[in-house]
Nucleic acid binder design. Sequence first.
DNA 1: CTGAAAGCGCTTACAG
DNA 2: CTGAAAGCGCTTACAG
Lengths: 344, 344
Amino acid sequence: MTKRVRRRSKNVVTMAEVAKLAGVSTMTVSNVLNKKPSVLPERRQAVLDAMEQLNYRPNVAARALASAGSIRIGLLYRDVENAILGAMLLGALKASVRLGFQLIIRSYDEAKPLDDVAAFAVSGIDGLLVPPPLCELVSFSGMSAKLSIPMIGLAPGTNLPDMPSVRIDDELAAYEVTRLLLDKGHRRIGFVKLPGAMVGQTRLAGVQRALGERGLTLDERFIWEARPMYEAGLALADRICKMDDRPSVILAGSDDIAAAIVNVMHRCGLHVPEDISIVGFDDTPIAVKIWPALTTVRQPLARIAEQATERLIQALQNPDEPRNDVIFIPHEIVQRASVSEHPA
Amino acid sequence: MTKRVRRRSKNVVTMAEVAKLAGVSTMTVSNVLNKKPSVLPERRQAVLDAMEQLNYRPNVAARALASAGSIRIGLLYRDVENAILGAMLLGALKASVRLGFQLIIRSYDEAKPLDDVAAFAVSGIDGLLVPPPLCELVSFSGMSAKLSIPMIGLAPGTNLPDMPSVRIDDELAAYEVTRLLLDKGHRRIGFVKLPGAMVGQTRLAGVQRALGERGLTLDERFIWEARPMYEAGLALADRICKMDDRPSVILAGSDDIAAAIVNVMHRCGLHVPEDISIVGFDDTPIAVKIWPALTTVRQPLARIAEQATERLIQALQNPDEPRNDVIFIPHEIVQRASVSEHPA
DNA sequence: CTGAAAGCGCTTACAG
DNA sequence: CTGAAAGCGCTTACAG
């Protein structure tokens, strides 16, 4: 019988040491840690003092392993360029820190998004925040049923069939902004759809509803598609610039697309908003960094992510409740300088 | 003696089940998992097949708890607006996924950064990536010695005394860009220092070296301070706009500051670069999203973070080696449209 | 090359 | 209200 020594890898303070110093069992320390009401005040204080004195910090891994409860939530991230994810990251961070959860970030490959979601889902996280447009893809693929962890969709363009989501009312937002443009006298409206996502269709419906109310329709030639990235906006704007019969205003699918259009118009010698008006979407930081500043639809992304994180954690703590509710967050039309009052 | 039932919280496949199906011990499964070369090929295959068949995924928490090895690294995050952190996040993500580490993100409060670093350091992570300017603060405060986990500084403005770092040579970069401006005929150079960080002083030294070589000095009135954020640039640009004796070119401390200056100059009726040239720093996405596009110094932030993550993981795996080396990453001067050839 | 056993630091029933 | 014991799913020495 040889002595078997296992050196502790890190010289961390354990619960046992706190218990010893406080003169209680580890159970009591655990109860104090988890704010169980049953511990007597004086004992609680003794434990708290011992924790303080030893600078005790619970080991998250041990906690996760022992506990039936969850502590880690994952967020899929795509790329930096995407200001949307940056804002969402902030909101998710805020809520997760507040509620004592760890936030694990992982990027995914756009060539095999579903595989990456599946791999992430089983990598030791307890719940998953799914940003757009990935959440629509996952939800409508039906894979979420096969995955063993709860998920929530962030800002999908439509209600999701098998997971809860937090979103704005895209149809209404598009309707309202279109009405605003009509009130300013715009009639030739251009619309940029976001491909591969429901949101394009949803917003288009809102635009058409506003037009329909005035007996107008959208000119098919003025409907384009572009990914919500600056580069895509650049390519699209080049085409628009060369048209001889241009819309008087363009409803871009994102602020990045709108900013790119503004940039190209400058180079084309067209003035914004005198010659052409541009409307963004999201109200990300770029909206006020360019000149002229963008009139846009504010989608409170940080707030959406924060609420979604709270909702996800709630789902983790109540595994049996229903799972496909929708929380709507109000949007806001932000008027700045990129839309003219009296269109050409 | 009552039966004590502990229901498994999640119906996950464990190593024991894989071992049973493969007809081996859990040890062998563990060895296969960790790619130990000692396992016989046919057994290895049996284990692999069993894993596949059961769709086995190792429990990260258990692994972390049992292992002396590390699997989690942390990154402190400040705010979305900061494109620098966005780029760094990408690089850190890339390296951590590749090397099989989890990346935990946490935000910190600028009112008590050191407290938040300390709290994060003991929250169950094994190593910490510290972005600028926090890394300078932490390093020069001497707190890193008290913290039990390895840290690495990302893009500090100077070499750090007690932790390794990955950075560009800021002095050289500032020197080179100043030489370029001098070659283009600029003499009245304005410089924006970043406050609360060594980097401002470091870059200023580079500017002064280039000027000194030509027998010139920097006009004290043309040295300003601004935090590397758009709003700070706006306030500064307002002041510059009102000067009657303006520099012919401004070396901004970040692309965000530069973009804000460009924006305000537009509003002031000044043309960039005809009336005034602007140089950014970092080459973040904003640099090409505004008009005119910014001439800037590219600091490969994603690459810096990626290298730093690799270096940190290496430090985790070799705890005894020295700890304050510096890895230099090459910078690059990117010439675009915001600098004139023939200054006013 | 392989496995039985101990251990990582916590939480969960259970008994008192 | 409190604690002894079992257990979470892995890895680490060690012996064979």
